[in-house]
């Protein structure tokens, strides 16, 4: 990637991700971003060291007397559901794919596997299945198109995967992430050129400023 990512994750988000306390929807967005951004990947790793330090200094609670033996029998029988261990050495990511691997895992393939639904104004979306605390969707915005002016009750994170958009605050290109807290109103517009593909996660319903979009809200499921 020739573009140097300018908009990164905040330390609070990185810490929550490393601690494993983010809702699944945000987890997915962070995993996708750090697949594209070594800077944030390193920051996540550093925060995992904090986790290690907290574990090390954590209050000990005694296990049952036969716990070690029980553990050895687990090892011998082979645990049925494997725990994912970080950095399993496999990578099948195709250089030309638009979606980073964690997203492909949810979509079931790259961009051509996404089941888009029209949401008006030329914009398309695909909601990805995650736990209910927050929602995450892929958005496809044709160049020059606008996403309706909206504020939100909770946090909204947007990761650009292809193309670019700008809003009142800045310009965002592939790999960039915009984090908007509650009550920020903004109007993202896709820059001219190829479709802007974004991943957007929210932990509460968006609230739209205009009348029409409010009616559309139940259909948009946002």
């Amino acid at each position: 990637m020739t573009y140097e990512i300018k908009h990164h994750l905040t330390e609070a988000v990185v810490m929550a991700y490393s601690a494993g306390t983010l809702p699944e929807a945000f987890n997915l967005l962070v995993a996708a971003h750090i697949s594209m951004c070594d800077e944030c990947r390193a920051l996540v790793a550093a925060h995992e060291f904090v986790g290690g330090a907290i574990l090390e200094d954590c209050e000990e609670i005694a296990l049952s007397d036969d716990a070690l033996e029980a553990c050895f029998s687990k090892i011998e029988t082979g645990a049925k559901d494997q725990i994912l261990v970080p950095a399993t050495p496999v990578s099948s990511q195709n250089e030309n794919s638009v979606l980073p691997q964690p997203l492909q895992d949810y979509v079931g393939g790259d961009l051509d596997a996404v089941k888009w639904r029209k949401v008006g104004g030329g914009v398309q979306q695909a909601i990805l299945r995650t736990s209910k605390e927050a929602t995450v969707r892929l958005l496809r915005i044709p160049g020059g198109c606008e996403v309706p002016d909206h504020g939100h009750h909770g946090t909204e994170m947007t990761l650009v995967l292809q193309g670019a958009f700008r809003d009142e605050f800045s310009e965002f290109r592939a790999g960039d992430v915009e984090i908007c807290d509650a009550d920020v109103e903004h109007t993202p517009i896709a820059l001219e050129g190829e479709d802007c593909i974004c991943l957007a996660a929210t932990d509460a319903r968006l609230k739209f400023a205009g009348f029409l979009p409010k009616i559309a809200q139940p259909f948009l499921r946002i």
């Binding site: 697949s35 060291f49 986790g51 290690g52 330090a53 050495p89 496999v90 691997q101």
Partner: peptide, 28 residues
């Protein structure tokens, strides 16, 4: 300790929250 922490964290997410934990793209 860091490595064990990450394994425990992943297990915690799997079990306590019954969620998938999206893993970042693996590096070889």
């Amino acid at each position: 300790a860091t490595w064990i922490f990450t394994i425990a964290r992943n297990r915690k997410i799997d079990i306590l929250r019954k969620q998938r934990r999206p893993e970042p793209e693996d590096l070889p």
